[in-house]
């Protein structure tokens, strides 16, 4: 049958198989990797194929971006504040207190900002996407789209993955700025540094090699969050129990992927430094 490959549910490994593999966990791991790879290929196949779902994409960008702003903002502010307060005694001990803005800025922009924001979005957005798609699967909404002649993979999955890929860098930039504001507040708890002086030191301490790779990797973080959330939700089974499993495993797997991507990005960046 001319089955819609892009919308076909990727089947999970067969639990009831009579031929029990020697290392079932290894087997399941490679099956999962294969299914995720196929899912990713399907996403790229469908991105460039019309019709384009601009309205749904905008809606998802709003859901992912705007609705995450308060959480990302609050955690970003606390992150900058705490990092500054915790670092101050050590720098004071070396008589390098004046380096505080520079040290905090490099830490936040290069590493902590992108990773912490991505992890927060993995928890908020990734689990949300996983649960939403799994519940759509359970209540046959995805099947209903398919039988009305609409490609549910393109409408549901592709739009969400693009939205997370585009919105995460925006959220990270927002989080970085708020974190630096938090750091500025922390510096002024014990000291008296002007806004101009603080940010002059921050900008002076950063160069292109700090900002650009950190920004680029956030696109990959966003893609991982959206793709894993959609994969787990779209291929959910086991009824309502599957909704919880999808949400949970989306967070766990996307968080793991974020660290793996970060490790690769750091290795890759270090080649050019």
């Amino acid at each position: 049958m001319g089955k819609n490959n892009s919308s076909t549910k990727e089947t999970a490994p067969d639990d009831d198989s009579k031929d029990e593999p020697l290392f079932p966990n290894f087997n399941n791991f490679f099956t999962e990797v294969t299914l995720i790879s196929k899912f990713t290929v399907n996403i790229f196949k469908n991105i460039f194929r019309p019709p384009y779902e601009f309205n749904e994409l905008l809606k998802q960008c709003y859901n992912v971006g705007c609705r995450s702003l308060p959480l990302v903002g609050i955690t970003g502010f606390i992150m900058g504040l705490v990092l500054t307060i915790q670092s101050r005694p050590t720098l004071e001990a070396f008589g390098a207190e004046s380096w505080l803005p520079a040290m905090v800025a490099v830490s936040i922009i290069r590493e902590i900002g992108p990773v912490i924001t991505a992890l927060i979005c993995s928890g908020k957005v990734g689990s949300g996407i996983g649960a939403e798609l799994a519940s759509m699967r359970v209540t046959e909404q995805i099947d209903a789209m398919e039988v009305s002649g609409i490609n549910p993979f393109k409408y549901i999955v592709v739009t969400r993955v693009i939205a997370t890929t585009l919105m995460l860098p925006v959220l990270v930039v927002f989080s970085d700025v708020i974190s630096l504001a938090g750091s500025f507040a922390a510096v002024n708890i014990k000291g008296d540094v002007t806004f101009y002086l603080f940010f002059a030191q921050v900008i002076e301490s950063l160069d292109f090699a700090d900002v650009f790779p950190a920004f680029i990797k956030t696109f990959f973080f966003g893609f991982a969050i959206g793709m894993i959330g959609c994969f787990k939700g779209y291929n959910s089974n086991k009824g309502t129990e599957g909704v919880g499993i999808a949400a949970n495993s989306a967070v766990v797997l996307s968080s793991l992927l974020i660290f793996i991507i970060d490790m690769i990005a750091v290795q890759f960046t270090s080649l050019f430094q």
């Binding site: 049958m1 001319g2 819609n4 209903a144 009305s148």
Partner: peptide, 27 residues
């Protein structure tokens, strides 16, 4: 039906209505 490609199947699906047990309305 079994010989249709994706486009053909989607065209045919528009001529076949399916009412799901749960109605499957988009929440």
């Amino acid at each position: 039906i079994l010989e249709q490609d994706e486009k053909g199947l989607n065209t045919l699906r528009k001529k076949i209505g399916f009412l799901f047990q749960s109605a499957a309305l988009y929440d």
